[in-house]
Design a protein around this nucleic acid. Structure first.
Length: 415
DNA sequence: CTCGGAAGCCGGTTTACGTT
DNA sequence: AACGTAAACCGGCTTCCGAG
């Protein structure tokens, strides 16, 4: 954007991270100059990307951004340290709307909790010409029913906000000298400020308490589906019907969905039914950075990502006891359109069975990346012949050379 | 006809950088 | 100094489409 100063048009742009100015008598010339500078910057960024190999870009990306979930984890651990004398703190299931559940230790109703949203920031930053480093917190404006606790790790500072008050805020919060921000400060290690107990008591008066599962099940349909499959599996194994939750020291969104009693690290998937094949299809990929056009990419798993791939197969059973694998496909966000209806439908599914495929088998078949091979990003699983026959599910008419028919050996029937 | 793999959508997260 | 956005990371499930 060019602007007029006196009788001249000013242009401002960044060149190698340094802000520069130039003035023109003619507005059109100024605009033209600005556009050229912007195009040049764009081109420079593109060249920068292209000058590196895919692996280099990935390594740099991981170094720069890979610890984002660890930042939140550490923030929660810091908060727990400050609160553990008077409060019980539980981690809510991965992917749910809220992050932690809080309960006063002397509380009468021992199964009720407050749902809290944590926003974290590893350090204060000063970019460009900004002199004072400040903390910044993102995506703060969509938590109408939660207390939002903003935690900066270095230096350790904590602010409280009512999610409702931030609904009309822009998505980001910057530490500033504004009154509302100063008043929100409740902990500052360097300054020796600690009003946590007092703040919690006052702020939490505005919120309702719920049981833990209320928070664990605030999920998108896709995550609800996986959670539900996991619960049906637990029921089958006579384990308690609860959501899988990570521990305080685990990082959110890892490739491991749960641990078996023997310590095996499990990656859980729900497989899909397709009319074009007698097998069941699933995606065997994790995010793997961006391509040259900066678009998200997905890639195969690596050999150390998990120990066992567990693939769940849902079915529906009608009044006559007939098994059908056909079901609705849902991809609805939490509380999106027709969400409740979809959840009700999902709750009518039964667990027909599951495949337990060990990592070494996936490596042998070339489905996971190792030093010596690039894995694959999709897999089809097949029912054993006698199982398929028993419920009149079609068998593959022709078995191709590269068919994953070997998956039959790993199927366990539940129903 | 079958299969593999990519593309596309949903969700979550934080940080860097350019603009106002 | 404050703000807005692009870009990077992570997870999930479903559908499409070309190759064999």
């Amino acid at each position: 954007m060019v602007w007029k100063q006196g009788n001249k048009w000013q242009v401002k742009w960044h060149e190698n991270k340094i802000q520069k100015f130039q003035s023109f008598y003619n507005e059109q010339e100024a605009i033209k100059f600005e556009n050229e500078k912007r195009a040049l910057n764009k081109l420079q960024r593109k060249r920068e990307r292209e000058s590196k190999t895919k692996e280099q870009r990935r390594a740099e990306g991981l170094l720069k951004y890979g610890g984002t979930n660890e930042c939140e984890s550490e923030a929660i651990r810091q908060l727990v340290k400050l609160l553990e004398n008077n409060w019980n703190v539980l981690i809510i299931r991965d992917g749910a709307h809220n992050d932690i559940a809080l309960q006063k230790k002397d509380s009468q109703d021992t199964d009720l909790y407050y749902g809290i949203q944590i926003k974290s920031c590893s350090k204060q930053t000063a970019t460009g010409h900004t002199k004072t480093p400040v903390a910044q917190f993102c995506h703060v404006n969509h938590y109408p029913n939660s207390l939002i606790i903003c935690i900066c790790l270095k230096p350790l500072k904590i602010w409280f906000f009512h999610g409702k008050n931030l609904l009309n805020n822009n998505p980001k919060l910057w530490e500033s000298k504004k009154t509302y921000f100063k008043e929100a400060l409740c902990y500052d290690k360097e300054e020796g400020i600690n009003k946590l107990q007092e703040f919690l008591t006052t702020y939490l008066k505005n919120y309702e308490e719920h049981k833990l599962d209320y928070y664990n099940l605030q999920l998108n349909t896709s995550q609800f589906l996986e959670d539900y499959a996991n619960r049906l599996y637990k029921e089958h194994k006579n384990l308690p019907m609860v959501s899988e939750r990570r521990g305080l020291n685990e990082i959110e969104n890892s490739c491991v969905d749960c641990l078996d009693p023997d310590g095996s690290r499990i990656q859980e998937k729900v497989c899909c039914v397709e009319s074009t094949t007698t097998g069941f299809t699933l995606n065997l990929a994790k995010s793997s950075g961006r391509n040259l056009e900066s678009k998200l990419t997905k890639g195969p798993y690596n050999e150390n990502d998990f120990d066992i791939l567990r693939v769940y197969l849902f079915c529906k059973v009608d009044e006559l006891g007939k098994v059908s694998f056909k079901r609705e496909k849902y991809c609805i966000k939490y509380n999106g359109k027709n969400y409740e209806k979809a959840i009700e439908d999902i709750k009518s599914y039964k667990l027909f069975g599951y495949w337990n495929i060990p990592m070494n088998q996936l490596i042998t078949e070339g489905y996971v990346s190792t030093k010596n091979q690039k894995g694959k990003t999709a897999l089809k699983v097949f029912l054993p012949e006698q199982v398929a026959n028993s419920i009149h599910h079609s068998l593959p008419k022709k078995i191709q050379k590269k068919s994953t028919i070997w998956t039959r050996d790993y199927f366990q029937q539940v129903l």
